[in-house]
């Protein structure tokens, strides 16, 4: 991607409260560059509840409403229906939720909105734990990962919930996984989501330097390694078409390299790393990538 061709218009203000190197702040910045100012954000409890600024200041230049943790997709349904009734059908109504608000407490509302084919875009920025409350395990926490509620590591039998396929099973307009470490992929998918009509879901892997126990400078690198090692697969599913892997790593990086540069995995022994590698291989085989 030629970054010189990316718009200079920013829809975020400086001075937000994201931690240094936060993947969620960066993802929002670019998502809005694609979505533009005809966009409304609905935000359940998440790191972004803080990032967005303290009353009466705001980090976003588009309308934003904060909502209770479990309600994002339902609130967005109400917002979209209101806009439709006001003759503003074209407004992008976007849920911007973390993994907790999506995989766990917000899943029911999400499923409801997806099933009703609500005309909204649901973005989950997945930093793989309850980071805002201090790094507690969620159902998006990968096997093996340390969190404050899995102090000896998330048990390997707790496989990360397969959100992509859960949403796909509702047969919505568009479902994708992406990460800002792959700018082309990210921009194309947000563009597709923006142009599709109906329920759209984008699952973004989003590095959290404090929660992943990595140096803030390695934030983008971590997201990239997750993809290059096959831990996170970039995919999409357009309604009526088969699931498509949108990026195939050239040569798979051993998962060891991804895991062991992160503090949250540093307790893993060689056997556990190998077991995780096998789990990843099996997943990749099921996708025809191995």
């Amino acid at each position: 991607m030629d970054f010189r061709e990316v718009t200079n218009i920013e829809y975020m203000n400086q001075g937000d409260f994201a931690c240094p190197g936060c993947g969620a702040g960066l993802s929002m910045r670019h998502a809005l560059k694609v979505l533009g100012d005809n966009t409304v954000i609905v935000m359940p409890a998440s790191c972004w509840s803080i990032i967005s600024g303290v009353f009466p200041t705001a980090a976003l230049q588009v309308p934003l409403m904060h909502v209770p943790f479990a309600t994002a997709a339902a609130v967005a349904s109400g917002v979209k229906n209101a806009f439709r009734k006001k003759g503003q059908e074209d407004v992008n109504v976007v849920c911007w939720a973390g993994d907790g608000g999506t995989f766990d407490i917000g899943l029911q509302a999400l499923s409801g909105a997806a099933e009703r084919k609500e005309d909204i875009i649901y973005v989950c920025y997945d930093n793989e734990a309850y980071m805002n409350t201090g790094i507690q395990r969620s159902s998006a926490t990968p096997p093996g990962a340390w969190t404050t509620t899995t102090p000896t590591g998330n048990p390997l039998i707790y496989e990360k919930k397969d959100m992509f396929n859960i949403v796909v099973s509702h047969n919505p307009a568009y479902v994708a996984t992406s990460t800002i470490a792959y700018p082309d992929d990210f921009y194309q998918k947000f563009e597709k989501a923006k142009n599709a009509k109906g329920f759209r879901f984008i699952h973004l892997l989003s590095a959290c330097p404090p929660g992943w126990r990595i140096d803030s400078k390695d934030s983008v690198k971590a997201m990239r390694l997750a993809v290059e090692s096959g831990v996170f697969v970039l995919m999409e599913k357009e309604q009526g078409k088969p699931v498509k892997v949108t990026y195939k790593p050239k040569g798979l990086v051993p998962v060891r390299e991804y895991l062991l540069f992160q503090g949250r995995y540093k307790h893993l022994n060689e056997d556990t790393v190998n077991e995780i590698q096998i789990m990843i291989n099996e997943h990749l085989m099921s996708l025809g990538l191995l």
Partner: peptide
């Protein structure tokens, strides 16, 4: 919620 007068509702 008005895209022509963007406000944030409910910030901390």
């Amino acid at each position: 919620l008005d895209v022509d007068n963007p406000l944030s509702f409910g910030n901390a």
